[in-house]
Amino acid sequence: MARESWGIIDKQRSGRYRARYTHQGERHTAPHTFDTKDAARTWLSRQRIAIADGTWVHPEEAKKRAETEAAEAARKQITVDEYAEQYIERRFNAGKLGGKTAYDYRLYWHGPRPKSKGQRATAGGRLHHFAGWPIGDIAYEDVCDWHDEQMESGALTQVTRCYEHLKTVMLDAEDRGLIDRNPCRIKDAKVATGKKRTPPTDAELPIVIDAMPLSLQPLVILAAAVGGRFGELTAFRKRDFTVEYDDDGAVECVRATVAKAITYVPKEGRSEKGPKTEAGNRQVPFFGHDALIFASHLSTIDDPDQLLFTDATGDAPLPHGSFTWHWIKARKAANRPDLQLHSLRHYHGSRYAQLSGASLAEVMARLGHVSVTAAMRYQHAGTRADELARRAAR
């Protein structure tokens, strides 16, 4: 043991040197040994200077800080797809993300899983390009290059959804301190999808309805009358409707209460849940010929808890595939091979806004929207340009 002008240096059996010093009545030892005595002296000198200028930190506290910094560095090395999975799981467990949406988000990264044991897995989703990247390594230029390449595929809808998901995940990482700034900052990123939904005309809709089986005609009528989504339509039970009559006993109105929706997640099956947002809970009245026909359909059902549209067993909700088989033939009869059932939601939104003179807020309430942007997508120009010009004439 050799005493220095300040501190102690010991030569170990291994030939290496240990440095120690005393401060505030407590002896402190260097966290490691040194190759040479001069290296040990240098370490002691640094500790003495730190004590003198007030920057000295207790070794235990310094150790905790180092461990925290190491853990933080390791946390920031998490890959972006791993963090996306944590984000999806966190949102799902908090009840802010539905099972179908969580499934779709995972497809963006990994693509669909094999349906059978012998089937090969796909190469991954559109965001698979970033899988394995440390979350802090993705730069703005990387996102731009990926976005430009994906847009060339022409799949504008999928690219837009994937980009918005990546942007949300990276924003969450920024909020939690994993990255300094969100790299998803493309100012001219396409936010509107390339697919345009053209609603049926008043002449086409009856052709589509008549071409459907009698058991499914009420579903199509309801879709056009209340603007419901397929999941909402197939969740309806008789108790969700109230029929109102006029003084002469004729059907005047049918009020639909939208409070549930059927969702389907592969390998998990169908389940009933609440609407996507609080605005989805709504009452939608409809009148006229649609109300008369639908009230007649309701009168054929005795059990108030009975689902209105079911599979072949009569106990489970109508599968989308079973409906689509008939829908394809019906839209072909109207010479509208592009027509989707969801287009009737656009039909209803446009008709309600144009013919009733409803305000944007009223249209949003009827369709169950919380954003103006979403509501505007369901309003189409229509064919009353002459009427509007006549109203504007001086």
Rank of each mutant, 00 (worst) to 15 (best):
A225T: 10
A225V: 12
V226G: 02
G227V: 14
G228R: 15
G228S: 15
F230T: 09
T234E: 01
F236R: 02
F236P: 15
R237P: 01
K238V: 08
D240S: 08
F241K: 01
T242L: 09
V243K: 01
V243N: 01
V243F: 06
E244F: 14
D246V: 06
D247H: 07
D248Y: 09
E252W: 05
V254S: 01
R255K: 09
R255N: 03
A259P: 06
A261G: 06
A261H: 07
T263A: 03
T263F: 03
Y264E: 11
Y264P: 05
P266K: 11
P266T: 12
K267Y: 13
K267V: 06
G269K: 14
R270Y: 15
S271C: 07
S271M: 12
S271T: 15
S271Q: 13
E272Y: 03
K276M: 09
K276P: 05
K276D: 13
T277H: 10
T277K: 08
E278V: 03
E278I: 05
A279Q: 11
G280A: 02
Q283R: 04
F286S: 06
F286W: 15
D290G: 11
D290E: 05
A291P: 01
L292W: 04
L292D: 10
I293C: 13
I293P: 04
F294S: 06
H297N: 08
L298I: 14
T300D: 12
I301N: 14
I301F: 06
I301C: 07
D302E: 12
L308E: 07
D311R: 13
A312F: 02
T313P: 00
T313H: 01
A316Q: 09
P317C: 03
P317Y: 00
P317H: 04
P319R: 00
H320L: 07
H320G: 05
H320W: 09
G321C: 08
S322W: 07
S322Y: 08
T324S: 00
W325L: 03
W325F: 09
W327D: 01
W327N: 01
I328F: 13
A330N: 03
A333Q: 09
N335P: 07
R336W: 07
R336I: 08
P337F: 06
P337C: 04
D338W: 15
Q340F: 12
Q340L: 11
H342I: 14
S343V: 02
L344T: 10
L344A: 08
L344C: 11
